[in-house]
Structures are given as structure tokens and as C-alpha cells.
Amino acid sequence: MLTINIHEAKTHLSRLIEQAAKGESFIIAKAGRPMVKVIALDAPGAGQAKRLGFLAGQITVPDDFDRMGSAEIESLFGGGA
């Protein structure tokens, strides 16, 4: 991760904000000591994974998924045979 000093951050703030917004977070240091981490607001935090598609390739959905158990459900509601 990029670490820059506070003077350089002030000089190039617009460019650095654009980079952070694209997901390229960075650290601002003062006298060589890290002070803050700049990240995009919509970026997932540490340890957070995107949930959509997290099991991709690990499971399969049957073609009749939307009809599975329909006979049993229908009989529970008094319909059918």
C-alpha cells in the first residue's frame, strides 16, 4: 500500500482522492509515522467479502429448483390429490 507524507498529500490531494475512489487506498504519514488510511467509502472493510457469488463454482442449482416440492406444498394447503 502506498504511503505518502502529509506535505505530498496536500500537494496532490485531488489525484490521491481519485485513486482512492477507484479502490487504491493509501496511508498518509507525518514525519514517517503512519497517521491515517484513506479508502473509498463504498470499499469493503477489512475482512469483508462481497457476498454476491461467494459460492460460484462450488454448488449447482437444479433445473427444476422452482418446482421442487410443489406436490407436497400443494397437499399441505388442501389442493391437488
Rank of each mutant, 00 (worst) to 15 (best):
M1H: 15
M1R: 14
M1Y: 15
L2D: 12
L2K: 14
L2G: 03
I4N: 01
N5V: 00
N5Q: 06
H7A: 04
H7S: 00
E8S: 05
E8K: 07
E8F: 06
A9S: 05
K10E: 11
H12F: 12
L13M: 10
L13F: 11
S14V: 13
S14M: 11
S14H: 13
S14Y: 13
I17T: 10
I17V: 13
E18G: 11
E18S: 12
Q19A: 14
Q19I: 07
Q19E: 15
A20P: 04
A20I: 09
A21F: 10
A21M: 14
A21K: 14
G23V: 13
E24Y: 13
E24H: 14
E24L: 08
S25T: 05
S25E: 11
S25V: 02
F26C: 04
F26Y: 15
F26Q: 02
I27Q: 01
I27R: 03
I28A: 02
I28Y: 03
I28N: 02
I28Q: 01
I28V: 15
A29M: 03
K30C: 10
K30H: 14
A31D: 14
A31G: 09
G32W: 07
G32A: 05
P34Q: 05
M35C: 05
V36G: 01
V36K: 06
V36F: 13
A40I: 00
L41S: 04
D42A: 07
D42I: 04
D42W: 09
A43T: 09
A43E: 05
P44H: 08
G45Q: 15
A46S: 08
A46F: 10
A46P: 06
G47E: 06
Q48K: 14
A49K: 14
A49T: 12
A49R: 14
A49P: 03
A49E: 12
K50R: 15
G53D: 04
G53N: 09
F54W: 12
F54D: 08
F54H: 12
L55K: 13
Q58R: 08
T60I: 06
V61N: 01
V61W: 04
P62C: 02
D63L: 01
D63T: 02
D64T: 01
F65T: 01
F65Q: 00
D66P: 00
D66S: 10
R67D: 07
R67E: 07
M68W: 00
M68G: 00
G69W: 05
S70A: 06
S70H: 03
S70W: 02
A71Q: 11
A71C: 04
E72G: 08
I73G: 02
I73T: 10
I73W: 07
E74C: 01
L76A: 06
F77W: 06
F77L: 08
F77M: 05
F77N: 01
F77R: 05
F77V: 09
G78H: 12
G78L: 12
G78N: 11
G79M: 10
G80Q: 08
G80P: 00
G80M: 04
G80C: 02
G80E: 09
A81D: 08
A81W: 06
A81R: 09
